[in-house]
Design a protein around this nucleic acid. Structure first.
Lengths: 143, 143
DNA sequence: TATATTTAAGAATAAGGAGTCTTAATTCTT
DNA sequence: AAGAATTAAGACTCCTTATTCTTAAATATA
């Protein structure tokens, strides 16, 4: 359901929150190394996060990125929207073209519940909560 | 979350159940026309459904496909498994490589609940129920 | 038996996303 | 001012999936 770009972007945001938060600037190169992934691919996705207003970026030596908001104000749904978009939450599970609340397919209502629950989870889970949990539980944020 | 092939396959199975059920043989060509989709693409996916034991197929004039089981015995999850596989239900939402019940990421448990609910829905919803609902509600099965 | 019809199988092509690279722009440091 | 470091932007390649097509096999019917 989430693209690999989106999953990686969330993990990157988790790392940035953990390592730099709203203050310290972290080079994308460092993030790529910690996540053990391609700098090129990550940098491309980071650009989207910058455009979406979730990160500030700084060029030049000592440059990099940092959170554009407080960790408690950045929700997972914001990252999902910036990278994958919200189409998943807006289309019929079975692909019926004209399916809607007014003209529902046979599983529209059942699915609606599930989808809303997922949306709620993404909307209510902040970077602060995730990173806090991982640090509290001594979970390495880049495992 | 479901591929377009999977969505179309489910809609095809709904049509086959509605139009022929376990008795009457329906040509794939007819299904493609009713669903207003590509015969070629549908035929390929139908092959997978035949291999998965959800449909019987018959060659030659008057040939086509029919359900290989009673409509109440074919669950949505069977179709999903045949076309997309169950990877969705088995991998970490955030793509952490070593995430598991024993070594969970920060949203593993939350996500686990949602995922199980979706799996349950797919596992407990039969073609009979869907087609019955659509017929009862006067919903066109191919809208 | 010949023909038409239909699925089976796999090759071929198209499209989209994933991933890489190159060049430009910016800015820190010396 | 020059050089190095870093992001920005867009082109490019590669790979997977989606989609189409071709040929083979099977079978009903005349």
């Amino acid at each position: 359901m989430l693209s690999s770009a989106c999953k990686e972007s969330i993990r990157a945001m988790i790392y940035i929150t953990h390592a730099g938060g709203e203050r310290k600037i972290i080079p994308v190169k460092e993030v790529a190394e910690k996540l053990d992934t391609s700098f090129y691919f990550l940098a491309k996705n980071v650009q989207k996060l910058v455009k979406a207003g979730l990160l500030f970026s700084y060029k030049g030596p000592k440059g990099g990125v940092k959170l554009a908001k407080k960790p408690e104000e950045i929700m997972l749904i914001d990252i999902v929207e910036a990278i994958d978009g919200l189409e998943f939450f807006e289309t019929c599970l079975l692909g019926f073209k004209d399916c809607s609340d007014e003209h529902p397919c046979a599983i529209h209502h059942k699915w609606s519940d599930k989808r809303k629950a997922i949306y709620k989870m993404f909307s209510e889970t902040s970077l602060k909560e995730i990173v806090g949990d991982m640090e509290k539980l001594c979970i390495n944020v880049v495992f």
